[in-house]
Design a binder for these strands. Structure first.
Lengths: 299, 299
DNA sequence: AACACCATTTGTCGTGGACAAATTGCCTAT
DNA sequence: ATAGGCAATTTGTCCACGACAAATGGTGTT
């Protein structure tokens, strides 16, 4: 009963079947049992270890070293997570701690209320910039260290997304410029970053047309043209797939007419290959500046 | 330039590399070129054909027949799509046609306004039941027949989701029962069905805790317990993965304590293996009845 | 009709070899 | 020391072909 087929492990860990087999051949791990038909059958224990390894792998480690260590990974893991330890002001710190606590206690209702309160108190921009981004980082860290379950992270995403959408919806309509089409690359499914990006742009008077996440490249091009977009905004999360994304901006730049600007935002945008004609927005302030620039150039 | 590696074709069509290779071996199609290193290189034309085949495959056809036909597939395709031709009343029909038209003209703003108007006019329940479900079907059909681009479908999903969330958020809070945790199976990423399900439940006084889509089975169990749920509601879309889902209800039933009810909704729920202790809600009315039943049983 | 039984179809898995891209380590010139 | 070039290693992906079990379809019997 306890154990998984190779297909299940692939889904569960994100490591392809080929990789699982070649690791076994080369490094002797994982070393699954075999069922009656000779098919691999991975004990839960090995699957968990594989998940750990995969996470560290995505953080830039090499497989060979990872597979040989045992309890040392834990140290490596902890050492990794502590690196981006940017501390907030004390009051912010308290707010964040309280929010995380509510999340861990699964008090969905009060968690939502608390976020709502912060939004009302700080206004949309500061709410996103100071509370939500920091909270998203904490949640990500907590998840990586195992302190938060997946479903707790999902709940955070869902509630935060709900509040953001509501706030965006409440912004006044009217004639708005520039016209921005928002989406993410095909493999990128983090909607929250996209929403935060949209909130920022909408706040400053842009007309945002969000297409949701995971759009094939070809269709991004079609969409930008069909909507007569002035700007195509892409969100890249800091998580998972970095390699596949590296080239996305260049491909898009080739696909789109030069009069449509391309802006890349999100924590993952930093790692992108720098491309002529693609603006990487590292911080929210840069986003605001880009918007102001665009507007002044249109006069 | 025009063509794809086997990995790209897998992503683009949803057919695994194994399947692509075994089809080539057995049926002689696809028949990709080879690059300098001997690796397969699929011309765009074959990729498109594979996409067509995959769609029909998901509708229940067998590969062998599909691969041999040529222009006949078109007929099969059309014949298939016409089958579920449940016509609406004339006025509904007009509304749907107008909405589809707005979508095709990429008038995001007016499309959203039109949906909003319908919602206000019909109320949430009838809006979901009569307009949104029918519209989702039309959009799906149009996409399958190639009349709608992917980004147009995404826009529909995004706008509809936004309106639904807004409507759900506007419902009065308070002490609500039962407490329902909502999510979808790991491979199922259609959020819209989940939202419609949530709208229905929330409307009838349930406290909904939505965890978003794509939740690993183990975590669904953890979440239901952590949130002290009375009911676990799962949404299954009619699209893609049917095989992997067949067994989901049984596994969940084993994972959860018997006092937590499991309800499965959505077009895909019909195809699930029937399991003791798992309620399949085929229509919205059944959903209402299940809720009423649950409430009366609690007295 | 309902059911059991057999042939065919079909997706997935296994082994092991090969290779090219990415990364590392090392050496040299500025 | 730092930058740049080169060779060795690491690593993921691909290929071929065989095997098999689950799903499906058809056939005959009750």
């Amino acid at each position: 009963m306890p154990g998984s087929t190779i297909a299940a492990v692939e889904r569960h860990t994100g490591l392809s079947k080929d990789v699982l087999r070649v690791w076994e051949r080369r490094y002797g791990f994982p070393k699954p049992d075999r069922d009656a038909g000779g098919d691999r059958f991975y004990p839960d224990e090995q699957v968990e270890r594989l998940q750990l390894i995969k996470r560290l792998l995505d953080q830039g480690h090499r497989p060979k070293n990872l597979i040989q260590a045992s309890a040392d990974e834990l140290k490596a893991l902890i050492a990794q997570r502590r690196k981006p330890g940017v501390r907030e002001s004390e009051s912010d710190e308290r707010v964040l701690a309280e929010l995380l606590d509510l999340l861990k206690r699964h008090d969905a209702g009060r968690f939502q209320q608390a976020l709502q309160y912060d939004l009302a108190k700080q206004g949309l921009q500061h709410f996103v910039q100071d509370t939500l981004i920091a909270l998203a980082c904490r949640v990500g860290e907590a998840w990586e260290s195992g302190a938060l379950e997946i479903f707790e992270e999902h709940l955070f995403t869902e509630v935060a997304a709900r509040i953001l959408r509501q706030a965006i919806g409440a912004l006044p309509a009217g004639i708005r410029r520039p016209r921005v089409v928002l989406t993410t690359a095909p493999e990128e499914q983090h909607e929250l970053g996209l929403l935060m990006f949209e909130a920022l742009l909408a706040l400053e008077g842009a007309e945002c047309i969000s297409l949701g996440a995971r759009m094939p490249l070809r269709d991004i091009g079609l969409a930008a043209s069909a909507h007569r977009a002035d700007v195509l905004a892409l969100s890249f999360s800091g998580a998972y797939p970095c390699r596949q994304h590296l080239d996305v901006p260049r491909q898009l730049r080739e696909l789109l007419p030069p009069e449509i600007a391309i802006w890349a935002g999100g924590a993952g945008a930093l790692k992108l290959a720098k491309t002529e004609g693609v603006l990487v927005l590292e911080t929210f302030d840069e986003g605001l500046r880009a918007l102001a620039d665009w507007k002044s150039r249109q006069l």
